[in-house]
Design a protein around this nucleic acid. Structure first.
Length: 355
DNA sequence: AATAATGGCAACCGCGAAAGC
DNA sequence: TGCTTTCGCGGTTGCCATTAT
């Protein structure tokens, strides 16, 4: 049962005419009512807006800490990284960007970032090169349907949030980190839990908070479990772009050697790090994982170097800092440059793959 | 200069979960 | 326990500004 619509009354539907109501709403909030009484506000104020709409207006535009200026290249980069990992969960993404609302992030993605990624030959949904998707498309067969897999993953995520003492310590630890710190991300007003400080310089950009990192680890882990439970799925090869796309999470690796990804590896193009497969994975982890068994991978997730010590945040930050994030220009522009260079070196890549 | 097409932003609205009674 | 109300989230829509023809 859903909530009945509150804004069907077209008399109240006064799009883009907020000038007068803004001051009324601000006055209403700043006086005795405060935030959290939007229905009351709507009834008592007689402004002609439903409470929901007024609340949205307040949180998106009127709140003091909402930034009005345009997104920085660093912010764009972070949004793409987070989208590659957790998908279109705009509220979570927005929480990592001080002064940005989920609506702002969503609009930026839909109007700008999505198109830029497409123009670069990267599928904005799967964060894989189109060439790899086309290659993988030929391999589809015998895999669960996307929707089935998605429902299954959701179930596993829910199950993961329960306490499961029978689980091995390493996996339980990951889940507990996630459960304790990230499952219900607090609505933070401070900048302490954000990627950016107020001045948003590039050095701070790389300071990923532990709670978000744990969340990303947990999401990745659930995907691993999902793959492990599936008799047809392996860690070393996961060629179905449709299922990958539906989960918005990635397997640990993909050895699928599409021409584009292979060439990218050969040319050490940094923007491979923004593709879904390996986003947010420490670099030393990537290098070793292909040769590992599932059990080894699980252990590795908690003890990378044999000393029962998980990859540190320092390692992760170092990894991130080597990927061009400190560039003063937009990372999207940098990716475009890399792509242009690649096409110059390998003209065959620009040919239509269907012919 | 006028009109059409496009892009970007902000608001609207439906759904599902949570909270309250 | 079940119903109603409220809230959070994310997809969609509408409006305005800019660009192209």
């Amino acid at each position: 049962m859903g909530r009945p619509p509150c804004c069907n009354d077209k008399v109240h539907n006064r799009r883009c005419n907020w000038t007068e109501d803004d001051s009324n709403t601000s006055t209403f909030v700043s006086t005795k009512h405060g935030i959290g009484n939007w229905a009351t506000m709507s009834k008592k104020s007689g402004y002609g807006r439903c409470g929901r709409t007024q609340k949205q207006r307040w949180s998106n535009r009127l709140k003091a800490d909402v930034k009005q200026e345009s997104f920085t290249p660093q912010e764009e980069e972070l949004i793409i990284k987070l989208h590659a990992t957790i998908g279109s969960r705009w509220s979570i993404i927005a929480q990592q960007l001080a002064g940005r609302t989920d609506n702002d992030v969503k609009n930026l993605w839909n109007t700008k970032l999505k198109k830029k990624l497409s123009a670069m030959g990267i599928d904005p949904v799967t964060h894989k090169p189109f060439s790899q998707i086309l290659t993988d498309y030929g391999n589809i067969g015998g895999f669960p349907k996307a929707r089935t897999r998605f429902v299954s993953l959701n179930r596993e995520l829910k199950g993961a949030f329960m306490s499961r003492p029978e689980q091995p310590q390493h996996s339980l630890q990951t889940f507990q980190n996630f459960n304790n710190l990230c499952v219900k991300l607090p609505k933070t007003e401070s900048s302490e839990e954000c990627f950016f400080s107020n001045n948003q310089d590039s050095s701070n950009f790389n300071q990923v908070p532990v709670d978000l990192f744990s969340e990303l680890q947990a999401i990745k882990f659930v995907t691993e479990v999902s793959n492990y439970n599936s008799p047809k799925a392996t860690f070393s090869h996961h060629p179905n772009p449709i299922t990958d796309c539906s989960t918005t999470c990635s397997p640990l690796s993909s050895s699928s050697s599409s021409s584009a990804s292979h060439l990218l590896a050969e040319n050490q193009v940094n923007w491979r790090d923004y593709l879904l497969d390996e986003a947010f994975l420490p670099s030393n982890f990537k290098d070793q994982e292909d040769a590992l068994t599932i059990e080894e991978k699980l252990v590795c997730s908690g003890a990378q170097d044999g000393s029962n010590k998980a990859p540190s945040m320092k390692d992760f930050e170092t990894s991130l800092s080597t990927k061009g994030t400190s560039s003063s220009s937009s990372f999207v522009d940098a990716m475009l440059e890399c792509e242009n260079e690649m096409f110059l070196n390998f003209p065959g890549l620009s040919e239509d793959p269907f012919y």
